[in-house]
């Protein structure tokens, strides 16, 4: 496998999973809700998309998957805004419930095969047959959806509704005493975010021509790692730029992972690595802030200060 094909694989997978990263960009970075239903919603998108595609509707499958994502996001949002369920717990509950739903969607099976099924990818493949782009059909489909979502997010977050969603995450106190209904902004934000997560799952399943019940396991951590990596490159600035940064983060994550695989890192390490990245990214700023305190303690215990005091 040449370096170029390594990059291409990373780019394809990175772009497809970047849709989940963009979902978290909306729910985690903007709305300040850690949506733990992401794994289940990703799988839901994959199963719904696969079932609809198998029934002979490749284009409809994408829309159906996104609609399923909206529904899942709606339930998560209702649980935390109207039913008094803690937002983390709401995500976990929906995630658990979706496991059963996903098996039911696949018709009491935990695996579906799409080897001979028409999907958006095979459609693009036959469209590009004979042209110089014929090998890049996966990349083009993924890129198309990523651009669509980035443009949508950039425009949407500039509208009053988008601003209201950002304010809800940024200063809940302000929103509570302003004319914005935080319940509404949370519901709309989570519905949109989960539609992207489901889209991401749908595309991954169709690009690898199969879906199994574990396809989304660990997605929330992987996407969070990508989001935080993206934040290293673009931490401030315009929303559109930060969204592109999130996509770039997804690509970098995949690239590093793909290269690590080449150096014989076993594939099952993916989830451990992504967990460690998330911990490092979140803990570093915190520990940096604690550093003066550590120093002070150290000095107090072993340093000069101690000697002076005892004299």
């Amino acid at each position: 496998m040449s370096f170029l094909s390594l990059v291409q694989t990373a780019l394809e997978l990175g772009l497809i999973s970047s849709l989940t990263v963009l979902a978290l960009f909306l729910s985690y970075s903007m709305l300040n809700v850690c949506d733990l239903s992401t794994d289940g919603c990703f799988t839901l998108g994959a199963t719904v998309g696969a079932v609809v595609a198998l029934s002979g509707h490749p284009y409809l499958s994408v829309l159906a998957a996104m609609a399923a994502g909206v529904l899942s996001g709606f339930i998560t949002a209702i649980l935390q805004t109207k039913m008094g369920v803690n937002s983390l717990l709401a995500g976990i509950i929906v995630n658990t419930a979706l496991y059963s739903v996903n098996i039911a969607v696949m018709g009491n099976s935990s695996l579906l095969n799409m080897n001979k099924t028409d999907t958006v990818f095979t459609k693009m493949q036959s469209l590009l047959k004979g042209t110089f782009l014929s090998g890049q059909y996966k990349l083009i489909v993924a890129l198309f959806f990523v651009i669509l979502v980035v443009v949508f997010l950039t425009l949407f977050l500039r509208t009053r509704l988008g601003l209201a969603i950002r304010a809800t995450g940024n200063n809940p106190d302000m929103v509570r005493s302003s004319s914005i209904n935080p319940i509404m902004t949370t519901i709309i934000g989570l519905c949109i975010a989960n539609s992207f997560t489901a889209l991401s799952g749908c595309l991954l399943a169709q690009s690898q021509k199969s879906v199994n019940i574990d396809i989304g396991t660990g997605m929330v951590t992987i996407a969070l790692a990508s989001l935080l990596i993206g934040g290293i490159f673009v931490s401030k600035g315009k929303i559109g730029l930060r969204a592109v940064g999130a996509v770039f983060g997804a690509f970098v994550f995949r690239l590093v992972y793909t290269i690590a695989l080449r150096f014989n890192m076993p594939a099952f390490m993916l989830k451990l690595v992504s967990s460690v990245i998330v911990v490092i990214a979140i803990a570093t700023p915190y520990l940096k802030k604690q550093l003066p305190l550590f120093k002070r303690r150290w000095q107090h215990r072993f340093g000069k200060e101690e000697a002076e005091c005892s004299e």
């Binding site: 601003l163 950002r166 304010a167 940024n170 200063n171 302000m174």
Partner: peptide, 9 residues
């Protein structure tokens, strides 16, 4: 004074 506006916007 921090309550009435969104600092990140």
């Amino acid at each position: 004074p921090m309550r009435g506006s969104a600092p990140g916007m």
